[in-house]
Design a protein around this nucleic acid. Structure first.
Lengths: 163, 163
DNA sequence: CTTTATGAGTTTAGTTCTTCAACTCAGGTC
DNA sequence: GACCTGAGTTGAAGAACTAAACTCATAAAG
């Protein structure tokens, strides 16, 4: 029996992973979300090899996740820092989801080392409560279980035959 | 000036990525969420090398993400299939987050190839609306922007000095 | 009872990716 | 001019990935 399935290769998950799925990429984004900006900061925080950090940063800049910006400390020459673009900051939910999953199933016996809290940059509504990632549908059904969702073809779907 | 920061190495994101951060791992989980169960299904859907698929499945089983279950087709000998554990299904939000990010920033010109919908397995409340991943705090503030959250130390936090 | 078919791997050889350490480069300080 | 620093680059060794051929157990066909 032949069935048609959504082509697994033409998928945004695969495309997303081709940008941030390499080793270190998401950790670099995480450190950037936590304030790292300079080559040496990423290097010492993560312990990543320097050449690899250089190529990862270049990849992330090329992909539009980060931006290379000049800076100059007083009494020093101009150097370059790396900051997230809006596209890069949009990876926050992905990282929170991974963090939650790790906390739940690969927990440190001491408990989580990091808690994400609701604390805006401008401190306007600083409720400080822990933040979770949840699935919500357009009809407003919230906190959906993983079993309550399924994948359906979208407008850009390609199909493959399978036995 | 010395400051104390949360040790970036002792973090659930890093631990999560050590399990599902290798190339192919998340795509294998995605296919499993979409119903793939057998070695050959994963192989033909993803085009991953067979030896690598074998080691990935073994890694995922060892990590508790998948489970190796015997099955037997009529008139065939016993073989093994792979299915997600609860721990594995819990990666759904991570994959939805990645999918959304890919749809938003690396879109196919035709539009998304996959839409995740609210459709329970048991069809009880099948509203069928598209599903999104959102950040929500314990006080009920919903749809938080990436800028409105920050990382704080948890009970298991280790610290490192930095200049 | 020998041959062929099939799904699920394993082996092997070649290529690519990571790591680590040493080196370069462009200023600034002494 | 000699030395220091942050930001990379280079190169060699090791680990990971790819692709294709091979094995293995069983079932069905002849």
């Amino acid at each position: 029996m032949e069935t048609r399935r959504i082509d697994p290769v033409n998928c945004s998950v695969a495309r997303a992973l081709s940008v941030v799925g390499e080793r270190w990429s998401l950790l670099i984004v995480r450190e950037a979300l936590d304030g790292a900006r300079r080559f040496g900061e990423f290097h010492s925080r993560l312990g990543i090899a320097r050449n690899l950090l250089a190529t990862r940063l270049e990849t992330l800049v090329t992909a539009g996740v980060m931006r290379r910006v000049p800076y100059q400390e007083p009494g020093d020459r101009q150097r370059f820092a790396y900051e997230l673009t809006e596209q890069g900051r949009a990876l926050r939910p992905t990282l929170v989801a991974l963090l939650e999953w790790g906390d739940t199933y690969l927990a440190d016996p001491q408990g989580p080392s990091v808690i994400v809290r609701h604390r805006p940059v401008d401190d306007a509504i600083s409720c400080d409560e822990p933040v979770k990632v949840i699935l919500e549908c357009a009809a407003g059904h919230s906190r959906l279980a993983p079993e309550d969702v399924c994948r359906t073809p979208g407008p850009g779907a390609r199909f493959v035959e399978s036995s």
